[in-house]
């Protein structure tokens, strides 16, 4: 018998990622446990996407460790990721979701029904048979969300999920994220939209040049940023390596 597996808590211990000699992430100590959404913010190139890839297990730390529910096995179990630029499979919208369902171990007999349910959940039921690559940017983002939700994740990693969307599409995606969070899915998400961070975040992790500079509840971070770097970032100043 297999023990029930969990991907939470997600724990980084002194995790470093180097690309050749260049450090992308340095000494990350971070615990992501069930609760309100955790938002990773920081300037471009800070290492946010790298942090999420590490959290997904797509990247091994150069040193230090990442564990999921106490295990160091990086095979994705109850986690899913929405990439900054999701890739649509050359299939219909429904075909994309069905593929994710099958890979997540869904029984063949249940695939069509569950795919339909997921498409409804992201508001794409009417476009189920449209080629995924013909969908608009906002629709593709929602489809990618449906695909991620198909894994029935405990933790959902979202990399700038609304970066290239107009306000209406952004609201639609934020609503889906909000519902997912309300349903008990842990959200670990990057964003450079401070308004969005205020709307969604339970806690904030501030990353600059590969280092976590500040971790706090959203309220504390916005009201009383501790470091000069975070204060500058919140003012909208350009924050570089310190």
């Amino acid at each position: 018998m297999r023990a029930p597996v969990s991907d939470l808590p997600l724990v980084f211990s002194k995790a470093c990622v180097n690309l050749g000699a260049t450090p992308l992430l340095r000494d990350i100590d971070l615990v992501i446990a069930p609760g309100a959404p955790s938002l990773v913010i920081g300037p471009n190139g800070a290492g946010k996407s790298t942090l999420l890839r590490l959290a997904m297990g797509l990247l091994a730390p150069t040193s230090g460790t990442v564990t999921w529910g106490g295990s160091r096995d990086p095979a994705p179990r109850r986690r899913a990721i929405l990439f900054q630029r999701p890739v649509m499979l050359r299939r219909s919208a429904q075909g994309n979701v069905a593929y994710a369902l099958l890979q997540a171990g869904c029984a063949r007999a249940d695939v069509v029904g569950r795919a339909h349910h997921l498409l409804e959940r992201v508001g794409l039921a009417a476009l189920a048979h449209r080629p995924a690559r013909h969908l608009s940017g906002g629709e593709q983002q929602r489809l990618a969300l449906a695909r991620a939700l198909a894994r029935d994740p405990e933790i959902l990693l979202l990399d700038e999920p609304t970066a290239n969307l107009d306000p209406a599409a952004t609201r639609a995606v934020e609503a889906i994220i909000g519902e997912a969070a309300a349903s008990g899915i842990k959200i670990l998400m990057t964003s450079h939209d401070l308004g969005q961070v205020r709307r969604l975040a339970g806690e904030v992790h501030f990353l600059v040049a590969g280092r976590l500079r500040e971790s706090a509840s959203a309220a504390a971070f916005f009201d009383h940023p501790q470091s000069p770097l975070a204060q500058a970032f919140l003012r909208g100043d350009i924050v570089a390596e310190a």
Binding site: L58, P76, A80, I81, F83, A100, Q103, A104
Partner: peptide
């Protein structure tokens, strides 16, 4: 090259 990340994330 195009699908790699998505497929790895799905554990294919």
């Amino acid at each position: 090259l195009e699908y790699r990340d998505e497929m790895n994330a799905m554990g294919v």
